[in-house]
């Protein structure tokens, strides 16, 4: 049933999302030409910098595309669950937990695809440039990391962090919408925005506390090894792993709270 639910969720977003994706990809062509022209005219004081406006436009299209994706995901979630469409959604022979899980995957998949399209657009833009500029990281930082083979571990950690952050972001918005639609009775929009801000502050404080406690543990663990202070690669690895663990814990908690509210408190009047 999860596959079926997810298929219909993906289908409901696609017809609108694709316009944003096409616009983003198309904008990468003038964006690339602007970058190329800007690089060719570096130091030319007589040249009117029209490229800035095109690059700004590409930037705004990218932001609009991200916002469009967020709106599509969260509006669909609200409409499927808490508007009249909920009469159909919650009378389907599907567990509420499954319906919610499908919505979470739907949100993460569209966020990931949006980031991918933006990334492809940036690559297309860079392909137009005669030479790609690169900022160098000091070798005293990179050498111990690369030589110790930590770079592959970091890539894996970065991927895990991106995926968990995407889940966490989607789950926190779903929880806010769920609370706004089920528990709040009056001034729903204002109270829901208040809840969003409050939840964001509480989550941040909680994250900082958990990361701080974790860092103390990491520091004490490192101190146990005589060569630890020089082992920068391990330290970075452990800190990122800690952030992943905290994000994962928060994401799971947010999801479980939403599911519990939907299972116990949902009343479609």
């Amino acid at each position: 049933m999860l596959k079926k639910c997810l298929r219909y969720d993906l289908k409901s977003v696609f017809p609108y999302w694709i316009f944003g994706a096409i616009a983003m990809l198309l904008m990468s062509i003038p964006g690339g030409l602007a970058l190329r022209s800007q690089q060719l005219h570096t130091g030319d004081t007589d040249h009117f910098p029209w490229e800035i406006f095109v690059i700004m436009l590409v930037y705004f299209v990218g932001i609009a595309f991200l916002i469009l994706t967020e709106i599509l995901i969260y509006v669909r979630y609200y409409k499927h669950f808490f508007s009249d469409e909920g009469y159909l959604t919650f009378t389907l022979p599907v567990k509420r937990r499954t319906l919610f899980t499908a919505k979470v995957f739907n949100g993460v998949i569209w966020n990931a695809l949006t980031v991918l399209v933006i990334l492809v657009s940036v690559i297309i833009m860079f392909c137009f440039m005669p030479s790609i500029p690169s900022d160098t990281v000091p070798p005293e930082v990179t050498e111990p990391i690369i030589s110790a083979g930590w770079i592959f571990a970091y890539i894996l950690e970065a991927l895990a962090l991106i995926i968990i952050s995407a889940f966490s972001s989607v789950l926190s918005m779903y929880l806010i919408i769920t609370i706004g639609a089920t528990i709040v009775r009056k001034n729903k929009v204002i109270v829901t925005i208040g809840i969003a801000y409050g939840a964001s502050i509480v989550t941040s404080i909680l994250s900082y506390i958990l990361v701080f406690i974790g860092m103390l543990y990491v520091a004490s663990a490192i101190a146990l090894f005589p060569e630890a202070p020089s082992n920068l690669g391990l330290l970075i690895f452990l800190i990122i792993a800690l952030v992943i663990a905290v994000s994962f814990t928060i994401a799971v908690a947010l999801g479980l709270i939403s599911i519990r509210i939907i299972e116990r408190k949902l009343n479609l009047a």
Binding site: K79, E85, L88, L92, P93, V94
Partner: peptide
């Protein structure tokens, strides 16, 4: 329970399709 939905066919008093 949630599995009861398979036994019930419900027509609400308002349009509920997208």
């Amino acid at each position: 329970s949630e599995s009861s939905n398979a036994l019930i066919s419900y027509l609400p008093e308002r349009p509920y399709f997208s």
